[in-house]
């Protein structure tokens, strides 16, 4: 037998082995089914969350119905409006909805101009060598846990606002009624919540704005520049105009984050179920009241009220996020891939 022939003999062993392997149809099927199960588990989880929230908030839902979100009670002693009295079983989400809206709105008011400014700087003006580090820094800003923002806010931001910013606001804008710290000189309150939320949602808005801005084709910029436009005119007409829907999507996504943000806001908003015109007053937010009271809630009714607030938060954030996703998709879909 020649060498070549013996080699062929051995390879036939390989062939025999492979023939013995079967068609693994069963393994393939099993694998496929497993992957589908993993994917379906995501539906199951979202479904379970919704189901449990609905079930666990039945007590307050059946007692108050939709009134839960707009009813006002009256304090029998002082005659003042009152919203939240766990001891007497009176629950209304009004002050928390108000606090969430006010603090989120403040956050957007502060964060949007800064985020868009940052995005414009990073995509259109920044020297290449600075772009990477700055983008990385904003990414880090997004990675800092909420509780650390809260910690920093309690020990740095609150004293800063209390000692320097708030007095200035009271002096200059106190006449408007929005800045009145006479009831609450602690430095906590809606404004502090809004500022810390602004810092937290800034990176989201900024990075999405950057993404849609880079998705604007270069030809758009060149077309405007070719007409003799200055850089700002180019950015305004060539870039921002084309990217505006995506930027709005980014802002709404930031809003979604602000609405559900918990720890930092719990630590600085003051946690009182009250409504005030003054931004320097204490208040509450939907997420904060849950974090603050849930473990101490003793009555089923109290827990149910808090879970109903959670359910409302769940539904609102789903709507807000879905809307934002649609807008962002509409812009980035079909755009040329980013050049790094």
């Amino acid at each position: 037998m020649s060498l070549a022939e013996s080699a062929r003999e051995e390879q036939s062993a390989v062939r025999r082995f492979l023939l013995s392997r079967g068609n693994s149809a069963f393994a393939d099927r099993t694998f496929h089914v497993l992957m589908v199960v993993c994917a379906l588990s995501i539906f199951a989880i979202v479904g379970l969350i919704a189901w449990r929230l609905v079930v666990s908030s039945q007590i307050t839902w059946s007692k108050f119905g939709f009134h839960f979100f707009y009813q006002t009670f009256t304090d029998s002693v002082t005659g003042q409006p009152m919203y939240w009295d766990p001891v007497n079983g009176l629950f209304s989400a009004v002050p928390f909805v108000y606090g969430t809206l006010v603090s989120s709105f403040l956050a957007l008011l502060i964060a949007v101009p800064l985020a868009v400014g940052l995005a414009v700087f990073l995509t259109e003006m920044c020297p290449r060598s600075l772009r990477g580090p700055l983008a990385f820094l904003t990414e880090l800003l997004a990675a800092i846990p909420s509780v650390i923002y809260g910690l920093w806010a309690v020990f740095v931001l609150v004293p800063l606002l209390r000692e320097y910013v708030n007095p200035l606001l009271v002096k200059t804008l106190g006449w408007s009624g929005f800045f009145d710290d006479s009831m609450n000189p602690t430095g906590l309150g809606f404004l502090t919540g809004g500022v810390i939320l602004a810092i937290m949602i800034l990176p989201i808005i900024s990075s999405l704005t950057r993404e849609v801005m880079t998705a604007v084709p270069h030809s758009q910029r060149e077309a405007v520049l070719a007409l003799g436009a200055t850089r700002w005119e180019m950015i305004r007409m060539g870039v921002l105009r084309n990217a505006r829907i995506g930027i709005v999507g980014g802002i709404i996504l930031g809003l979604g984050r602000a609405l559900g943000e918990t720890m930092a806001i719990t630590m600085v908003i003051g946690n009182t179920p009250e409504i005030h015109k003054s931004l320097l007053a204490n208040g509450g937010s939907m997420a904060a009241v849950i974090a603050n009271e849930f473990t101490e809630a003793v009555s089923d009714m109290h827990r149910s009220a808090l879970i109903e607030i959670g359910l409302a938060l769940f539904i609102v954030t789903i709507i807000v996020n879905a809307f934002a996703q649609l807008l962002v998709w509409a812009v980035t879909r079909g755009a040329p891939s980013q050049v790094h």
Binding site: A7, E10, Q11, A13, V14, F17, L18, R21
Partner: peptide, 19 residues
């Protein structure tokens, strides 16, 4: 092709790769 089909004999693999 052999490894991913479950062939494990190291010595045989060495030979097959070389050939």
């Amino acid at each position: 092709g052999l490894k991913l089909n479950g062939y494990t004999s190291r010595r045989a693999l060495d030979e097959i790769v070389e050939r």
